[in-house]
Amino acid sequence: MKLELKAVKKSYGEHLALKGVSLSLDQTKCLTLIGPSGGGKSTTLRMIAGLETFDSGQIAIDGYPIPSEERDLRAYRKTIGVVFQSYNLFPHLDAITNITLPLEKVHGFSKDEAIEQANTLLARFRLEDHGKKQPSELSGGQNQRVAIARALAHDPKLILFDEPTSALDPEMSAEILDVIEELIDLGKECVIVTHQMGFAKRASEHVAFLAQGQVAEIGSSSQIFDDPRSPELKRFLERELKY
Rank of each mutant, 00 (worst) to 15 (best):
K133M: 14
I192C: 11
Q142G: 07
F54N: 02
L168C: 09
T43E: 03
G81V: 12
S220K: 08
K78I: 05
D226G: 10
L158P: 11
K9A: 05
I184V: 15
D72M: 09
V21W: 00
A123R: 15
R202M: 05
L183W: 08
S173C: 04
L237F: 12
K111N: 06
S173N: 02
G219Y: 12
A211H: 11
N98P: 09
T53W: 00
G63C: 06
F225H: 03
L31N: 02
A60N: 01
K132M: 12
D178G: 01
V82F: 15
E175V: 02
R229Q: 15
L160F: 04
Y12T: 04
S110W: 10
L122S: 03
T53Q: 13
E14S: 13
P135W: 00
T165L: 05
H154S: 12
K29T: 06
F199Q: 00
L103H: 05
Q134E: 12
A123Y: 12
A118S: 13
G63R: 10
S166G: 14
Q144L: 12
Q223E: 15
G108W: 10
R229M: 02
K234F: 07
I34F: 05
P65W: 02
A167Q: 06
G140D: 02
L121V: 14
E240S: 14
L210P: 07
A211R: 07
F209G: 10
A147D: 07
P67M: 13
L168D: 11
L237H: 10
K9I: 04
S37C: 08
L127I: 03
H92M: 06
V193W: 10
K132C: 03
E14I: 00
H195G: 04
A208S: 06
L18I: 06
K9M: 03
G198H: 07
H206R: 13
P102F: 09
I96W: 00
M1Q: 02
D155Q: 14
E182I: 01
E240F: 06
K19L: 04
N119H: 14
L233C: 13
E189V: 11
Q212C: 10
S204K: 07
K29N: 13
T97K: 15
A200D: 03
D62G: 13
I96S: 07
G63M: 09
